[in-house]
């Protein structure tokens, strides 16, 4: 009756792996870019993740926190993160230098439904730190470009200095197979070479969209969802083809500490990627 019939996950899901900061540099005033490699070579190469997932990063003496993986599984080896200075752990991370050791475990959470997205047009809308999880899927789409239809990117920031990964996005803008629109609410430099205005205003540039054949991926600050979702719904994209990744307090990443609970689910296990249908039928999601 008590026979083992299920293979359980390996020993200790809470145990961080020592990992090294390969490179780190500022993206904006309060966001830094981090390239990280798990110290043990074999474990580094066997770390398999998918777009949309996150990892728990720990700094000795400070603690542990969840961060979206910003790199793409189509370029294995290094893991990349965009991290905003927000509190204890992130402050400690900002103190660290290249070659310093941190702890890392994961990957956790669900993923973007890449298989279902194949052959479809993809509209990605990002604002602020929303670029962190969405960069992963964007690069994945570009690395597997022939598997998808049109790929459109709308990226908004308050001011030029606040746009994450500006240079990278400007060079992507040169690609013919990506329709890339970059906008700032307000151009305080007078030299912004792209759009000025709210990200919602970019929707008129999308041209003809076949809603049934389109997936839209959204991530940004809470206020952005409200307005961007309105625009996406106007396009008539089906509710379960609108995807977003959401943030909650997380202390374990594996469904045990309870902090990320919403309704009857745990964001760390059943999220962080949700559909718009999830959002309207589950309480408290946004």
């Amino acid at each position: 009756m008590n026979g083992e019939n299920k293979i359980k996950a390996p020993a200790n899901p809470f145990q961080p792996e020592p990992a090294r900061i390969v490179r780190t540099y500022p993206l904006t005033d309060d966001v830094n870019f981090f390239q990280i490699r798990i110290a043990d070579m074999e474990k580094a190469l066997s770390f398999q993740y998918q777009t949309g997932q996150f990892a728990m990063i720990s700094v000795l003496g400070a603690g542990e926190a969840p961060f979206s993986i910003s790199s793409t599984p189509s370029r294995p080896g290094l893991l990349e993160f965009c991290i905003r200075k927000a509190g204890t752990v992130t402050n400690a991370l900002f103190q660290m230098k290249e070659n310093d050791l941190i702890g890392l475990r994961g990957p956790y959470g669900n993923t973007f439904p890449i298989e279902k997205m194949q052959g479809k047009d993809i509209v990605i809308v990002m604002g602020g730190l929303g670029a962190a999880p969405l960069r992963s899927v964007l690069l994945y789409l570009l690395d597997n470009r022939d598997q998808f239809g049109r790929v459109l990117l709308l990226h908004g920031a308050k001011r030029p200095a606040e746009m994450l990964l500006r240079e990278e996005f400007f060079s992507l803008k040169e690609r013919e197979d990506l329709e890339c629109y970059l906008t700032v609410d307000e151009d305080d430099t007078g030299e912004w070479p792209a759009d000025v205005g709210l990200v919602t205003q970019l929707f008129k540039k999308l041209g003809n969209i076949n809603p049934e054949n389109t997936f839209s991926l959204v991530c940004g600050p809470p206020i952005m969802y409200k307005f961007v979702l309105k625009e996406i719904l106007k396009l008539n994209i089906p509710k379960d083809q609108i995807l977003m990744t959401l943030e909650r307090r997380m202390k374990c990443g594996v469904g045990k500490c309870g902090h990320c609970a919403i309704d009857y689910i745990y964001t760390c296990l059943d999220g962080p990627v949700f559909t718009y249908w999830d959002v309207i039928h589950m309480r408290e999601l946004i």
């Binding site: 720990s58 003496g61 603690g63 542990e64 045990k256 902090h259």
Partner: peptide, 10 residues
């Protein structure tokens, strides 16, 4: 009830 917090105590 099983919720918990994690703390790094140097």
């Amino acid at each position: 009830c099983n919720c918990y917090n994690v703390e790094d105590k140097p």
